[in-house]
Design a protein around this nucleic acid. Structure first.
Length: 949
RNA sequence: GCGGGGGUAGCCAAGCAUGGCCAAAGGCGAUAGACUCAAGAUCUAUUCCCAUAGGGGUCCGAGGGUUCAAAUCCCUUCCCCCGCACCA
């Protein structure tokens, strides 16, 4: 037997598979199709072990389905849409040392890097790198279908898709607020975003900008709690601050300079025309919105020009900051005197507006007392207090009777109503801001900007939502929890912006060429495109021939083939072939992707199918996989932290890594990468290698253990199939790599050597391993003269071989061994001779009666005592324990009945002797035999008495 | 905030839907032994506590409850984690 050398085997088989083009599959009406994809990767860096988990799962399922008789289509592509590619190229161009180091660490040469200073170079280099990595992992993708989203042909497909959405009235334009860099344009605010140098965790705040009439001008105050307007008592202004006066649509608004600068990006025709010192407003009054009451303007130093408008409306009843500031102001006589505020301030008192559970009607005051806050300098405590009150108020609060038409309304509801009313009456406007400072890579601030005519896909559409929900319920979605939540996700899924202005990679919006379709929107229907991509790759037609009529025909069956052929210049036969391929492969059986897709990609994937394709082409299944993590959190392509794959692959071998993915955790939990653990899988494969060789070298005939092995093997085979069909990858791998081998080991231990049987089961076993560890399977298959195990079918379960009786015998032996071992471990004996006493027949009689007439309970005693010649005391004692056992485990009692224990023990006596290196004597307990310790009375059906000396 | 998922023995991780073969699979680690006497190798056994005869005790985040019987069902409570739209 040769040693297991994974790397040699793996390169050998990968080469052969490639040469034989085993990945290739064609539509074939005679066999059932199975179409599976994984969510293609965006191009933003090298693949790492985290990605490979997802691709490996896809491959396990694809290979398994293939080996179960399906005709499988498993294509792949890449997704360069967006600006990641552009920013990567830019960083290379700028010789960013981090990026250069990252590229080199992953095997890029200096020459490669020269090539990577432009987006096209990046796309080409990385898509090649991805393909190489997939091949290296033995992932059997059908390369004929490969495509990526920046190709001309792909764009034709996307444009068609958007025309269809437009036709169905699912596109709309409306204003939108999104983060923009003042210099570079739109950016994403996200912790993993490489285009930011600061502030990835910032959240978008939606303020209501309240307008207070102040002479001819308006003072503005931004609030997150518009429902508290009824409790306004005053405004807080910083005396030292130099506020800007901004002209907006013929009005003059007062706000901090910083706020004014932000406003420039959110409203049209905004201009700073003047400035006003905070001091000048102190002591004056302004008319508050909604309540139309004049409230005083008071000095405060906690206002921050960078937050909101830099001016705060004060609601001391519900805002701890306001409450404590007001209190401190009242006590600060020096300050009051300075501005002449004594008379004004003494009348300012909190106004109760909301009643919330646990805090009463004056929540700010009660929480401040509760938390012992004494000064506005206790910022942390005040923040916490504010949060607590907000939560209590928002969820459980009710508006008090001061709030006019909103009286009694839950806060949750009142909030939006009050806001909308003020927006309608022009007393307020919207103002967007980021919760913390965000800086672009270029060093410029990121602010919230308005896009007045943003394109949206109308996912809120009721009909679309309902149809999608109904279909989602019919789909095969794993895990179960996601199947349950997807309909809800579809329900709250709102309109989604689908295009953006600026220089991005992607498809031009067909109705308005200024826009580029963004990355989520151009990757929803693409499984349908892979089918066409193959024919485009074969040069059957050019991109400019891919017209609306072409796609309508292929996907929707619209139009006359001859006419379509004429208008597009594509051969009729080609059109027919493409259309038939689509009909054959579609619908998609499984879309497999990471958990990050649950609330983003999968919903739109489904809804676009529902909105555009016919019902029979809507997807059948979704499978979600969780992450492979590394200490320090999620692995990120762009941020590194992951060991380059080639190094890991060399050390462990690909099959080891594949088995690691398959077995170390369920697909539906995050898994921490653990090298030591990976090594144990390397050892496991060594074990499998030797086991299969051992199987092949068997040269014996039949024995009593054969039926057991055959039965157990088929039972486990059935289990493996059912786990695979359920996408319970880990459980299936456990059966194949652990449970079945354990039974084979027992078989050998018991002296099984049936070469015919082992040959057959061994062949099935390597086929079972093939979806997981295909290289090893093919190598081992050579012993069976199989050209490609991975191209074979896994045999069906032989139901007729499954037998409780055959397995019962071995179970019984195992339990006898366990008992002997147990006794040996606690008893102080030599262990040279083992006496085994088999149950007397009357005990079997009792068990039999008890099993058939359990309900009679102890009433059986009378019957049995007549039938059996056994002392009543012994009989009742045994009967009681038998009834107990049956109650606990009826099945075990039944199988104990079926055993011919005497026969089994006598036949397998030598086996027990070998195991314990002892002499074994088997007795019948009912006979007068050697029994110095008086054990034989303990013998019961299925559990012989044992005496060791 | 909205939505979701968890807490099981030294660690990882099954089980929980359909309560009873559950002291609780499997793996890792650890211990002992075998073999080699080099190995992250391989094999065997042990690994909650007590026990010189196959037994007993305690246990599945915490606290209650239902039941003849609960890791599994119900209630309360504490603690962790994850996703959330121009990031793919």
């Amino acid at each position: 037997m040769e040693e297991y050398e994974p790397r040699t085997i793996e390169s050998k088989w990968q080469r052969r598979w490639e040469e034989a083009k085993l990945y290739r599959t064609e539509a074939d009406e005679d066999s059932e199709s199975f179409y599976i994809i994984f969510a293609y990767p965006g191009i933003s860096g090298f693949l790492h072990l985290g990605h490979m988990r997802c691709y490996s799962y896809t491959d396990f399922i694809a290979r398994y389905k293939k080996m179960r008789g399906y005709n499988v289509l498993f294509p792949a592509g890449a997704h360069p849409t967006g600006n990641q590619v552009i920013s990567l190229a830019k960083r290379v161009r700028e010789d960013d040392p981090d990026i250069i180091a990252y590229l080199k660490a992953n095997g890029a040469t200096d020459e490669d890097i020269l090539f990577l200073d432009n987006p096209d170079g990046i796309i080409e280099y990385f898509s090649r790198s991805y393909i190489k990595e997939w091949k290296n992992f033995g992932i059997q993708i059908n390369w004929d279908h490969f495509t990526y989203t920046s190709r001309e042909d792909y764009s034709k497909f996307i444009q068609w898709q958007f025309r269809k959405l437009k036709e169905k009235d699912l596109l709309t334009q409306k204003p939108y607020y999104a983060p923009v860099c003042k210099n570079c344009g739109p950016v994403a605010v996200d912790p993993s975003e490489t285009d930011l140098s600061k502030g990835g965790n910032a959240e978008i705040q939606e303020y209501t900008l309240l307008k207070f009439k102040f002479g001819n001008r308006y003072i503005t105050a931004a609030t997150l709690r518009p429902e508290t307007v009824y409790g306004q008592t005053n405004l807080w202004v910083s005396p030292e601050e130099d506020y800007a006066v901004v002209e907006v649509a013929g009005e003059e608004w007062i706000m901090s300079e910083a706020a004014a600068q932000k406003l420039l990006y959110q409203m049209d025709d905004v201009e700073v025309t003047d400035h006003i010192k905070g001091e000048e407003m102190i002591g004056e009054k302004a008319t508050a919105p909604m309540i139309h009451r004049d409230i005083p303007i008071l000095p405060a130093d906690f206002t921050d020009p960078d937050v909101g408008s830099g001016i705060v409306t004060s609601v001391p009843s519900d805002a701890p900051y306001d409450w404590i500031a007001l209190k401190e102001l009242k006590d600060n006589h020096g300050l009051l005197e300075k501005y002449g505020l004594e008379d004004i301030v003494k009348d300012v008192e909190p106004i109760e507006i909301i009643e919330s559970e646990g805090f009463g009607t004056n929540p700010a005051e009660s929480i401040i007392k509760e938390m012992g806050i004494t000064s506005q300098n206790e910022v942390e405590k005040l923040e916490e207090a504010t949060q607590k009150i907000y939560r209590a108020g928002f969820h459980k609060g009710k508006m008090l009777d001061i709030s006019g038409e909103y009286t009694g309304m839950p806060v949750q509801e009142a909030k939006d109503n009050i806001k909308d009313d003020m927006l309608d009456s022009g007393e307020a406007d919207m103002f967007y801001d980021l919760s913390e400072e965000v800086i672009c890579r270029c060093g410029t601030d990121v602010v919230m900007g308005k896009i007045p005519d943003q394109w949206f896909i109308r996912y809120s559409d009721e009909e679309l939502t309902e149809k999608s929900k109904a279909h989602a319920k019919k789909m095969n979605i794993k895990p179960e929890t996601y199947a349950n939540t997807l309909p809800d996700t579809l329900e709250w899924f709102q309109d989604r912006s689908c295009a953006r202005l600026g220089n991005w990679i992607g498809t031009r919006f067909p109705m308005d060429k200024r826009w580029i379709i963004e990355a989520i929107a151009d990757s929803t229907l693409y499984p349908a495109y892979y089918i066409i991509a193959k024919h485009y790759n074969d040069d059957k037609f050019q991109a400019d021939q891919m017209t609306v009529e072409f796609f309508d025909f292929v996907y929707l069956g619209k139009g006359e083939i001859s006419q379509v052929s004429e208008s597009t210049g594509i051969d009729i036969e080609v059109l027919e072939k493409v259309r038939n391929d689509f009909l054959y492969w579609y619908p998609l059986d499984i879309n497999l992707g990471g958990k990050e897709h649950m609330t983003v990609h999968f919903p739109v994937f489904l809804m676009n199918h529902v909105s555009i394709l016919k019902e029979e082409h809507w997807p059948r299944g979704i499978l979600v996989n969780w992450y492979l993590t590394m200490t320090g959190g999620k692995i990120s392509k762009s941020k590194g932290g992951a060991e380059p794959i080639p190094d890991v692959a060399d050390r462990f071998g690909i099959d080891t890594l594949r088995l690691y993915y398959a077995h170390s955790a369920s697909p539906f939990v995050d898994k921490e990468w653990d090298e030591k653990e990976a090594f144990t899988y390397r050892k496991r494969l060594g074990f499998m290698w030797r086991l299969i060789n051992r199987i092949k070298s068997a040269d014996g005939g039949g024995s009593s253990v054969d039926d057991f092995l055959e039965s157990r093997f088929n039972r486990l085979l059935e289990k493996a199939f059912s786990f695979m069909d359920d996408h319970e990858i880990r459980k299936a791998a456990n059966v194949v790599f652990y449970d079945i081998p354990a039974e084979l080991e027992w078989y050998f231990k018991r002296g099984g050597e049936n070469s015919a049987l082992l040959d057959r089961l061994g062949e099935t076993l390597i086929k079972l391993t093939a979806p997981f560890t295909p290289h090893m399977a093919d190598e081992l298959g050579e012993m069976w003269d199989i050209e490609y195990v991975t191209e074979e079918q896994i045999p069906e379960v032989r139901q007729e071989a499954i037998s409780d009786a055959a397995e019962g015998r071995e179970e019984y032996l195992r339990s006898v061994l366990d008992d002997i071992r147990n006794i040996l471990s606690i008893a102080d004996v030599e262990g040279d001779t083992i006496h085994i006493y088999v149950t007397p027949s009357w005990k079997k009689e009792v068990l039999k009666k008890a099993l058939t007439e359990t309900e009679k309970g102890m009433g059986l005693m009378a019957v049995l005592s007549k039938e059996l010649d056994v002392p009543p005391k012994k009989l009742s004692g045994f009967l009681r324990s038998v009834l107990e056992d049956i109650k606990k485990n009826r099945a075990a009692a039944v199988s104990a009945m079926a055993l011919d224990e005497m026969k089994i023990l006598q036949e397998d006596k030598s086996f027990i002797e070998r195991e314990f290196e002892a002499e074994v004597n088997v007795h019948l307990a009912s006979e007068d035999v050697y029994d110095p310790a008086n054990r034989k009375d303990k013998a019961a059906p299925g559990k012989p008495a044992i005496y060791i000396e």
